[in-house]
Design a protein around this nucleic acid. Structure first.
Length: 431
RNA sequence: UCCCCGGUAGCUCAAUCGGCAGAGCGGGUGGCUGUUAACCACUAGGUUGGGGGUUCGAGUCCCUCCCGGGGAGCCA
């Protein structure tokens, strides 16, 4: 008997096949039994008929419970009435293990309950669709940098000796008696790598001990951080635009059924084509004032303001040239206006918020040292970083893209906790 | 850390002015020859988050603690 996956059933019509999976649901109507089996690639309906009420197939069927593991055998046929369009005529049911009292029923559940059962929640068709789109986005990112742009993947360390950016938001751990921290960005290491290999990127988990409790925050999240030698801000923004367009097109091309399962408004994704609208920080402040926000030049653009700006456009919005005082110590000042940094953020449409933050980096040794001292950063820990400005320093730029926020936007999911298999949330690390 | 909302059956929720603690789903039993989160009948299932208080009487009012959700700040 040939073992096939549900997604391949269309190639086996008329054949006898074996499906190995789990019971998704079952129904019966007198002398007919319907068994819905999922195998990770899809769900198929299997049917059994009998004239007499008591027969071995029905007896086995009746022992099955939701999420019991099961192997079924039977003939594949096209069937309009079956979900998915194909159906198995049951010849044999082989229970593998009978599940007792599976907690997630096919009815509604609350978020707290589902999060506590995340290890089981992943079996639902909605979570299944999200995970497949997440995978597609990650694959698109890799293909974009590897195949389209010929970047080299350079893995950044996860255990680090000092803060890359802020100092208050790090997870601390013991490193043979020394303090070490979980990485909150691979960027500084990518700057070293860019000076070695030209165009590089890292892709990995990052950790932030921010006590943030919102739909856009995770304590552990995945980030892609390209860094390119000789790139200026303009080149950096263009790269970010190309990446985002590439990801969205790829998902539209390959994961339409999953988007439909999630009831995503696909027309909104189809509008994501370069060039994206751009507004400078100066212009943003003027726009917000006009909209009645109580804001002045120099203020941070907060969550509500960001949303208001992003909703003016149907494409991702690029905000650029933020005041240097608001931004990280390593950002290159604008030569025309030193109070500004050569920085940008990309805001996703539909209120999903910031998905990218990037900048041109300081390439001058003296200026970088000055900034490290102004920010009271440990100078010793940054010696290697300063070295990069001593030995063949060049202008360079890069950005970081948050994978979970991107997945949330593309899938249309409201909260990032559903966009990663096992989310780490404020005070919550189970399961 | 701060602000707001909530905690009642395994799950999702209801319970009027403070007056007998209920429904759907899930479980069990039976029925139904094409079901689509099937349907119908019957059935089991409760320390109303913990502690204290007010009252003839508290799921309901007060105090307190715990837990969960949403948001702010900060960020991707």
């Amino acid at each position: 008997m040939k073992w096939v996956y549900v997604e391949d059933l269309k190639d086996h019509v008329g054949e006898e096949v074996e499906i190995r999976g789990w019971v998704y649901n079952k129904r019966s109507s007198g002398r007919v039994r319907f068994l819905l089996v999922r195998d990770g690639t899809g769900i198929v309906q299997a049917t059994a008929w009998s004239k007499e009420k008591d027969n071995p197939l029905f007896r086995t069927f009746d022992t099955l419970t939701q999420e019991s593991s099961v192997i079924i055998r039977g003939k594949v046929k096209e069937e309009r009435r079956a979900p998915g369009g194909y159906e198995i005529e049951l010849k044999e049911i082989i229970p593998v293990q009978i599940a007792v009292d599976y907690p997630i029923t096919p009815k509604e559940h609350g978020v707290g309950f589902l999060m506590a059962h995340r290890h089981l929640w992943l079996r639902s068709s909605r979570q299944h669709a999200i995970m497949r789109i997440r995978h597609e986005i990650i694959k698109a990112i890799r293909d974009f940098f590897d195949e389209e742009k010929k970047f080299t993947l350079v893995d950044a360390p996860i255990l680090t000796p000092a803060a890359c950016e802020g100092t208050t938001t790090l997870f601390e751990t013991d490193y043979f008696g020394e303090k070490a921290y979980l990485s909150q960005s691979g960027q500084l290491y990518m700057e070293a790598a860019a000076m070695a290999l030209g165009k590089v990127y890292c892709f990995g988990p990052t950790f932030r001990a921010e006590k943030s409790k919102t739909r856009r925050h995770l304590m552990e999240f995945w980030m892609v951080e390209p860094e390119v030698a000789y790139f200026r801000l303009e080149d950096d923004i263009r790269l970010a635009e190309e990446l985002v367009e590439f990801m969205v097109k790829r998902v539209l091309e390959r994961r339409r059924p999953e988007l439909e399962r999630l009831e995503r408004d696909i027309s909104k994704l189809e509008k994501v084509e370069r060039p994206f609208p751009r507004i400078s920080y100066d212009e943003a402040i003027e726009l917000l004032k006009k909209d009645g926000f109580d804001i002045k030049w120099g203020d941070e653009i907060g969550g509500d303001e960001e949303t208001a700006l992003a909703l003016k456009f149907e494409k991702p919005l690029i905000l650029h040239r933020f005041p240097a005082a608001q931004k990280a110590f390593y950002m290159e000042p604008d030569p025309q206006r030193p109070e500004l940094s050569l920085s940008f953020d990309m805001l996703a449409p539909e209120g999903y918020g910031e998905i990218i933050g990037g900048s041109e980096r300081i390439s001058d040794y003296d200026l970088l040292l000055k900034r490290i001292r102004e920010n009271n950063l440990p100078e010793d820990a940054f010696q290697w970083y300063l070295d990069l400005r001593k030995y063949g320093s060049v202008p360079h730029a890069g950005f970081g893209l948050g994978v979970e926020r991107t997945v949330a936007w593309i899938t249309g999911v409201k909260h990032v906790r559903e966009t990663i298999p096992f989310p780490r949330l404020l005070y919550k690390i189970y399961p």
